[in-house]
Simulated assay, not measured.
Amino acid sequence: MRELPDDLVLPPGVVPDVAPEVPVTPRDAATVMLLRDGDAGVEVFLQRRVQGMAFAGGMTVFPGGGVDPRDADASIAWAGPPAEWWAERFACPPETARALVCAAVRETFEESGVLLAGPSADAVVADTSSYLEGRRALVAREVSLARFLGDEGLVLRADLLRPWANWVTPVEEPRRYDTRFFVAVLPGGQRADGWTTEAADAVWQSPSDALADWRDGRRMLMPPTRVVLSELAEFAGVSDVLVAPRAVEKIVPKVVRDGDEVRVVLP
């Protein structure tokens, strides 16, 4: 595990001046680092959240969000490692693990248009433009992931995901998430877009360039994003990321106040 840099100071207002008397129970969430090979190596898909959002407004993040209770629907056609395999990696019940994987697929499709699913267990859709109405219905919560995939005759491809990390929002914050990080490769023929009301812009960028933008003040990064980008920057190509051994541990940073500055440290 990397140490967080000394100059990782949170922007004003991210953490309230007074912490809740009783820590808020974290909500399960999933986020996906979409990867592709660029001319200079690994590139990752990043979105800058809209300013003023209740959580991480203005921050550069990966696609993702909270688990919908309907994500645990056992009727979803599934290909790849079973829920029990994911449960071992993320140290949670199989029902939770299944919902996390489904949330990762759903949120990635909602926020980037990339769909990790296919007409069979060994195929993946190459063009998602025909699923635009289904995407809109998912965003509006008019349909569940199970309903969308069932109506379109699609199989969720859990084998296209890899577990990467598990970060929990510090106890000092009023909105907390127990977020599992996944990596996935952009499927051939698909494209990631910025069509989401939650993002002000979206871009493919190498991890090292994204970190340089952070150091120069052009991006704001939450501590988990900063650490994960540092990890990804060490790989020469996407194939190296996919075969890298990972031991996922639950990380709960602490908030430390230094005068007017708020820093995040690892326990």
Rank of each mutant, 00 (worst) to 15 (best):
T196N: 15
R180Y: 02
A192T: 06
G194Q: 07
G188W: 02
V183L: 12
P187E: 03
L186N: 09
A158G: 14
A184P: 12
L161M: 08
R191K: 09
R175M: 13
T196C: 13
Y177M: 13
D178K: 01
T169V: 11
R176H: 09
G194S: 13
N166G: 04
L156N: 06
A184G: 09
F181R: 01
V155N: 09
Q190F: 07
L186M: 13
W195L: 14
R191S: 14
P163L: 09
V183M: 06
L149T: 01
G188Q: 14
D151I: 01
F181T: 03
R175G: 00
D178S: 14
L154W: 05
E152D: 04
L186T: 09
F181A: 11
R157I: 03
R191W: 00
G194K: 05
R191T: 13
L149G: 02
Q190Y: 02
L156A: 15
F182Y: 12
R180I: 11
F148T: 02
A165N: 10
L149D: 01
R175F: 12
V155T: 14
R175Q: 12
T196S: 15
R162S: 08
P170S: 10
F182N: 08
P170V: 09
D178Q: 04
L161F: 10
P170I: 03
V183N: 01
F148L: 15
G188T: 14
N166F: 02
L160N: 02
P187W: 02
L161P: 07
R180Q: 11
R180F: 04
F148R: 08
G189N: 08
G189D: 01
L161C: 04
L156Y: 07
V183E: 00
L186K: 12
A184M: 06
Y177H: 13
L160A: 14
G188R: 14
Q190C: 13
W195T: 12
R175T: 09
D178E: 05
L160M: 15
W167V: 03
R157L: 10
V155I: 07
T179R: 10
P187N: 10
W167N: 01
L160W: 05
L160I: 07
P170Q: 00
L161S: 03
Q190D: 11
G194P: 00
G194M: 04
P187R: 03
P174I: 13
T169F: 06
R157F: 04
E172N: 08
F181S: 10
D159R: 05
L160H: 12
G153N: 10
R162H: 11
A192C: 10
T179W: 00
Y177G: 00
F148G: 04
D151Q: 15
D193S: 14
L161Q: 07
L154D: 01
D151G: 04
D151C: 07
V155S: 08
R175L: 15
F148V: 08
P187Q: 06
L186I: 05
F148S: 09
P174H: 02
